[in-house]
């Protein structure tokens, strides 16, 4: 049982990788960006667990800025993904403009909340 599971997992891993290699590079950049944001968020959570949650607003804005960035990037990724049929009509430029606007709002709020 265990062996079959691990073999399955291996096969799964392989197929995942092969499928991912096929994704266009612009999407890969977004993925990298998302990964970076999530990584930063996790580091902050760990730091908070160690140091304590005293400047709670700073912690909140720090983590939420990372999470927000990641979420928005995922949204962008969904929209510019050419395979996604739901957004065929939405030009990527427009999607990107929306993304920039959304990010600006996010970071404005973060700046406000950080202190």
């Amino acid at each position: 049982m265990a062996r079959s599971t691990s073999r399955d997992a291996e096969a799964l891993f392989h197929s995942l990788r092969s499928a991912y290699v096929a994704t266009p590079s612009s999407l890969k950049i977004i993925d990298l960006y998302v990964g970076f944001a999530v990584f930063t968020a996790v580091i902050q959570v760990v730091y908070m667990a160690v140091v304590g949650s005293f400047p709670f607003n700073s912690f909140l804005s720090g983590v939420l800025s990372c999470v927000g960035t990641a979420v928005l990037a995922v949204c962008l990724r969904i929209q510019v993904n050419k395979e996604n049929k739901e957004f065929k009509d939405l030009p990527p430029e427009r999607a990107f403009a929306d993304f920039v606007l959304c990010n600006l709002v996010l970071h404005l709020v973060i700046m406000n909340f950080l202190g």
Binding site: Q44, G62, C66, T69, A73
Partner: peptide, 30 residues
């Protein structure tokens, strides 16, 4: 303000902003 304990959070937030900027550039020119 500017509590030392909160510097990592400040750093994270600003790195996100810088990251956003870099990403914008990269995304547009890729």
């Amino acid at each position: 303000r500017f509590l030392p304990a909160a510097y990592p959070y400040y750093g994270a937030s600003f790195s996100m902003m810088v990251g956003f900027f870099i990403f914008t550039v990269v995304h547009l020119y890729s």
